[in-house]
Write a protein that binds this DNA or RNA. Structure first.
Lengths: 178, 178
DNA sequence: AATGTATATGCACAAAAGTGCATAATAACA
DNA sequence: TGTTATTATGCACTTTTGTGCATATACATT
């Protein structure tokens, strides 16, 4: 049920529309929590009805009107309460690792391609994170507010690097077997 | 829908009962794919009806009878076909990272405890993997059959190490802020 | 003129995953 | 003698996710 909290956490930064959130999810919180725009709109409706966000429609000419959501005090208190609860171990579900585990009955050539592709994806994400870090987290003007997000971001960066390393190593081993 | 494949992959190693699979999931494939025993039994029923596994009831006195499932040739071919399909990026959902990202409205003391706990969990898992590696993947008797699983296992080991490192670093940073 | 891309929101259905509960026998322990 | 752990399977219900579809306009490209 933490999609609700993921959205609230995003909104602690600044008020956003569903569309903004969907993009934001791809860029930043995306590493910790993925969601499609449909899921986000659906959850926003629930948050609104629980009074955890306040929504304001902003007229735009041409494009559809934006509905900008602001986190309420009640919303912030929900985030705080949630932070006290012990998080569960993430239930990893990785197709690619699973395929590797099933090696014997598996197409090695396809695996090599899958892995190359995966490495590229992680590299793209790493670059994105590095850009975000460079732009938004300049050391000189680091506010207390941003420290947490910076640490989270750095964890994300380290994780991407690790994924690239692990898959590159595995790729070498897989190629040696063809 | 890859729970089906996760089970099939496990069964390529040796025929197993639902109970065995549930334990196996905790120990080995568990890193790539988590599932409860209920989910596994449910999926096994489907696999049986699709003729991807063959099930044989083995009488036991005292305990309930075991139902041992063997992967069929059809099952193996499904695994092969599945291996050709491009895997999707795993959709990470980590409560703890998310909490970190929402730093401002969050209880730092609780966070420190959450992280210590998480580190312990990863350490336990790492030890488990290392034991599995030492016991079942002795270099002298490495068959072609086992190479894939070994690579997967080593990826798992590296990942656990990385998680421990990342969270330990973050823990230090978090403690400095209290 | 037609096609594609970006902006912007959302419903409805389907698939997957998670949780609670139920059963049943043995062995070990307090 | 009651309690808990282990072995072993599974139903029913709920929650969460994912996918397909629908709508509407502006601007740029082909």
């Amino acid at each position: 049920m933490a999609l609700a909290e993921a959205i609230l956490v995003c909104l602690t930064e600044k008020p956003m529309s569903g569309y903004d959130l969907a993009k934001n999810f791809d860029a930043s919180v995306g590493f910790f929590w993925r969601a499609s725009h449909q899921q986000i709109y659906r959850e926003l409706a629930k948050l609104r009805s629980r009074n955890l966000v306040q929504s304001e429609e902003i007229s735009q000419s041409g494009k559809p009107n934006r509905i900008v959501h602001t986190i309420t005090d009640e919303g912030r208190s929900v985030v705080h309460q949630w932070s006290l609860k012990q998080p569960r171990m993430p239930s990893v579900k990785d197709d690619l690792l699973l395929k590797f585990y099933g090696f014997d009955d598996i197409d090695l050539g396809a695996m090599v391609e899958h892995m190359s592709h995966r490495i590229e994806q992680h590299e793209t994400r790493l670059q994105t994170y590095l850009k975000i870090k460079a732009r938004h987290y300049d050391k000189q003007e680091l506010t207390q507010l941003k420290t947490g997000k910076l640490i989270a971001l750095e964890m994300g960066i380290e994780n991407e690097k690790q994924q690239i390393k692990v898959f590159t190593d595995a790729l070498v081993k897989a190629r040696a077997l063809i």
